[in-house]
Write a protein that binds this DNA or RNA. Structure first.
Lengths: 209, 209
DNA sequence: CCTGAAGGTGAGCAAGCGCTTAGGCAAGTG
DNA sequence: CACTTGCCTAAGCGCTTGCTCACCTTCAGG
């Protein structure tokens, strides 16, 4: 022991957050917000989980709301990147839609505590921060809609109402964060595969092999 | 003027709640909880909306949590009744599933403020009340699963994973309460029709007329 | 007219909230 | 050594919270 070494008991997200104390606080906040909701979480809860005194929080973050914003921002960035990566890859529209849903859902299931905060605590943000986040969400919407439009144009999909179906697809994927339970029987991979199949059916893609 | 007269500016739900003051408080609570969430709503908010002093709340309800429980209970009862009515009707599995989704979604869109509280403020309930409500939700799940199972048995549906698909269908419908916006372009009826179509595709029902 | 129940209010209590302030301690620099 | 800088804590301020309590008003029944 002795050499610099990451503690990788489980996957370590939030690696981009530094310094260390700020990350510990952020991780603690994600856990607390996901479990009890933003408004039911106190700054003492967060600090306690991070093993610090309540005042320590305000060295790294100006307010409790800024913490939520940082989490929301990073989470939306990650989710959008995942969607975009799949959307911009090569392949048929069906392949891209399938990949997008699979990876998007896998993230929401695998990081369901983060995702829960990111997707369901939006109204707790202040006016300014909320509009920033809403803009990110519109980009997610656009990414999915583009794939579906491509599929319709190529004759791969049969979709009478593209905006409505886009909305439904995203809604379906996002809501995974609400019900997914680690204690449940499904792995994030399995849910991703199931949902990719369901979504291909929703857009009327010709039954894939 | 003077004859007894109902003020029916809009549909009057909660007619089953009496006396009048208790209903006004409950309606006020639904509005406040839906807008800002349970924990961010104060008893003064609720009383204020109902045009009463904060103390009046405690004449009709023991605690703020009891108010939430009453709302949640009534809402779940209503939602379950709607689902069951469609599920128990005559017709093919496809017809029953379509009817169930259409009416369930229409309720979630049309009463999206109530539905939002009912579906997304569950963790704010106390231990005892929450388990009671969770039991109701399992019945909703069972009702939908039964229709899907019927369809599979009859050869109408092609569903590899019945429990998973059931979960996805309910999740899809419930999440309508989160995003539906009165200012949006869709009516509850339109969303219900769209979703019924999407769900039939998800279960691989032969394209309906 | 009196009485008692039903339904309301104003004032306020104890607890908990987000956040601030004064100061402590360890490490780096001259 | 003195001094600064980065990170943290103990204590607590001002305010809001859920809820209570003493009291008031209205109205039906005898």
């Amino acid at each position: 022991m002795g050499a610099a070494q990451e503690t990788l008991g489980e996957e370590q997200p939030w690696a981009e957050v530094s310094p260390d104390a700020a990350r510990r606080l952020l991780v603690a906040a994600v856990g607390a917000f996901a479990e009890r909701g933003y408004h039911a979480t106190t700054t003492r809860d967060i600090a306690g989980r991070a093993g610090m005194s309540p005042a320590a929080l305000y060295i790294h973050y100006k307010t409790k709301e800024e913490l939520l914003h940082r989490i929301s921002r990073l989470g939306h960035d990650k989710a959008l990147t995942i969607l975009r990566t799949a959307a911009d890859s090569d392949g048929t529209a069906a392949e891209r839609l399938s990949a997008a849903v699979r990876s998007f859902v896998r993230w929401h299931a695998g990081h369901h505590t983060t995702a829960r905060v990111v997707q369901y605590e939006l109204d707790a943000l202040g006016e300014e921060h909320r509009t920033e986040i809403v803009a990110l969400r519109r980009q997610s919407d656009a990414a999915v809609r583009e794939i579906i439009n491509d599929g319709v144009r190529a004759g791969e999909f049969d979709v009478p109402d593209v905006p409505g179906t886009t909305l439904a697809v995203l809604s379906l994927c996002i809501d995974v964060a609400r019900w997914f339970n680690v204690a449940g029987r499904r792995t994030p991979d399995e849910v991703g595969a199931l949902y990719a199949d369901l979504v291909l059916r929703m857009v009327g893609a010709s039954p894939q092999k």
